[in-house]
Nucleic acid binder design. Structure first.
Lengths: 178, 178
DNA sequence: GAAAAGAAACCGTCCAGAGAGTATAGTAAA
DNA sequence: TTTACTATACTCTCTGGACGGTTTCTTTTC
């Protein structure tokens, strides 16, 4: 309805196509149909496929950044705000992760330069994590372990059960304030 | 020359194409040229694109499994053989990782079922790691952290410097025997 | 405040190019 | 004779993007 919404709807549709049908099915027509828009309408908003994927990445990067930033602001911790927020959001927010998966795969496939917004994100977070009031090596390991779960979910390679995942989450969180 | 070699050469060529030019350039013709084989010759060995990607995944899975198995056999550790080997191989072996990246991306793009050999690998390793004589949660976290580095290298998102990477490696290795 | 004008947000078709896979005829070596 | 190819040509399908509409909103003018 509102105008900004349509673009976002299209981006969600694109993510959905990638998630459910794979990158090779990320065609303009498939996205248009999924979004309930004609091909012409899609191209009005995103003049090329690359522009569409760029939109996906930028959108999810902004989204993810906000989530983490909000979590950091709400944190009452003395030390380890950033790493704690990163772990919380990434472990407990299946939605942005799904979009992230689709966006990453699409960008990697279409044009690696499109990953720049993600690179910026990671540079910011890595810097914050290393200046988070706790041992930077420890903090980085916690981040990496969090990303490790991500990798296996992205490729659907190995799923730790929910219980094991929780154990790991708790151990990591606990380690922050050790 | 030898018959088994040609197939392997083609698989390497395919990985190279994916690594250097992205998944969308993984065409039969591109692989054939890269491998120094005609398109007909390529199709003689791999009758379809899917068969080619299947070959890639199976080859790298076998390769990776061997590397880890050899490392485990050579290990003199009482406890933590598996997790230690996994970390060693993954940190210090850029070659199988590059192939792994290409194979994963190609399989994910073409047909997720092709990832089954990787799933088998991970199931085996996860089982071994949980029965490795050390706290299974700790061992799993070490594995995940190792995979985390992987993720960022796969997407070329963020590179810890070699020095930081080494610090992390040492801390993880040290943690095994703590 | 109604009508006209213009911009924004779409729709639907067409086409050129590319790539997967087929077909086929031939070659070299073991 | 079989295996392991080369080389070329051809079919068939799909897809990105161009293009020329049409409708809906917004603003201006009288």
């Amino acid at each position: 309805m509102a105008r900004a919404t349509r673009k976002v709807e299209i981006l969600h549709a694109a993510s959905k196509v990638v998630s459910e049908r794979g990158i090779f099915n990320l065609t303009l027509e498939a996205v248009a149909i999924e979004a309930g828009v004609s091909k012409g309408g899609l191209l009005y908003h995103f003049p090329s496929k690359e522009a569409l994927v760029k939109g996906m990445v930028e959108h999810l990067a902004a989204n993810y950044r906000d989530k983490i930033a909000t979590s950091v602001e709400d944190s009452t911790l003395e030390n380890g705000k950033w790493i704690s927020s990163y772990t919380d959001v990434t472990f407990n927010n299946p939605y942005p992760n799904k979009e992230m998966h689709a966006g990453l795969l699409a960008a990697k496939a279409v044009n690696s330069d499109l990953l720049d917004p993600i690179r910026d994100l990671y540079n910011e977070w890595q810097a914050a994590i290393e200046d988070d009031g706790i041992d930077p090596v420890k903090a980085t390991i916690i981040r990496l372990a969090t990303d490790g779960i991500w990798l296996s979910e992205l490729f659907d390679i190995h799923h730790l059960g929910e219980d094991k995942k929780k154990e790991i989450y708790l151990k990591l969180k606990n380690w922050i304030n050790e």
